[in-house]
């Protein structure tokens, strides 16, 4: 079984992002970038399945500018076997990402595609589902547990009401929740070895995919600052206000 893991390079989750003054986006110069956190869970799960002898190869793929390669290197350092970097500059929407991944899937013919459930930059939560639709494959989103059975996966999903378990036939897409596992650290010798693992470079433009933007980003702004309200003088007044003015109790 072959597993393709899609990883994305995003602003590190500890960095306090800043909005550009002209409203055209977020400042990313000299900002620490990392792999999208749930994508690390996706890689970890794929590597675990491989270590359990149920997969022969784990391939990490990323789509983005030159430096996006770092995320593939990181996946290689924690156990992926080889990497693919599809080069494209600028913002690409999930639909275009899904279409590029579709081409990669057609070329690589994996049995499973894993990725994080959502990227922490655009917070779209679309790519995995879109890829499933394009491929007409089963999808198991927000996975917190994956069991590999013969030609099938049993996946526990985190849903609003609690947990849901589905069984999906391979080939399939799984999007991973942070609760799925605890990603391992890349050890120093493995980082060294990862430097020698191959990363295939593709150009998005060569794949024959329409990546043009369908959504115009008009402006990006900081969240509105909340205005201070009033001070109440007693608990009784507070409860009255909550009941009659704010109508929340």
């Amino acid at each position: 079984m072959k597993i393709l893991v899609a990883v994305k390079r995003v602003v590190d989750y500890n960095v306090q992002i800043r909005v550009k003054e002209d409203g055209s986006g977020i400042i990313t110069d000299n900002v620490k970038m990392s792999t999208n956190p749930p994508d690390d869970n996706a890689t970890e799960e794929a590597v675990k399945i491989k270590e359990a002898g149920k997969s022969k190869e784990v391939v990490a793929v990323t789509i983005g500018e030159e430096k996006a390669q770092e995320t593939v290197r990181k996946a290689l350092a924690v156990g992926a076997d080889r990497g693919i970097h599809v080069k494209i500059d600028g913002i690409i929407e999930p639909l275009a990402v899904a279409k590029i991944l579709q081409k990669v899937v057609e070329k690589e013919k994996p049995d499973l595609v894993f990725m994080g459930k959502q990227a922490i930059d655009d917070d779209c939560n679309q790519t995995g589902q879109m890829l499933s639709a394009l491929l007409n494959w089963p999808q198991a989103t927000f996975a917190s547990k994956i069991e590999v059975k013969d030609k099938k996966l049993e996946v526990t999903r985190e849903i609003d009401e609690g947990l849901e378990t589905v069984e999906i036939n391979i080939p399939a897409i799984v999007t991973c929740d942070l609760r799925l596992n605890e990603p391992r650290y890349a050890s120093l010798p493995n980082i060294m070895k990862a430097k020698k693992k191959p990363i295939e470079q593709l150009n998005a433009s060569d794949l024959g995919v329409d990546t043009s933007s369908r959504i115009e980003q008009i402006k990006v702004e900081e969240p509105p600052k909340r205005k201070a309200g009033i001070k109440v003088s007693s608990v009784a007044e507070l409860v009255q206000k909550l009941k009659n003015e704010a109508k929340v109790i």
Partner: peptide, 11 residues
């Protein structure tokens, strides 16, 4: 040691 334990190495 946690599950994610990764020993340091000597350089």
């Amino acid at each position: 040691k946690k599950d994610s334990f990764e020993p340091g190495i000597d350089l």
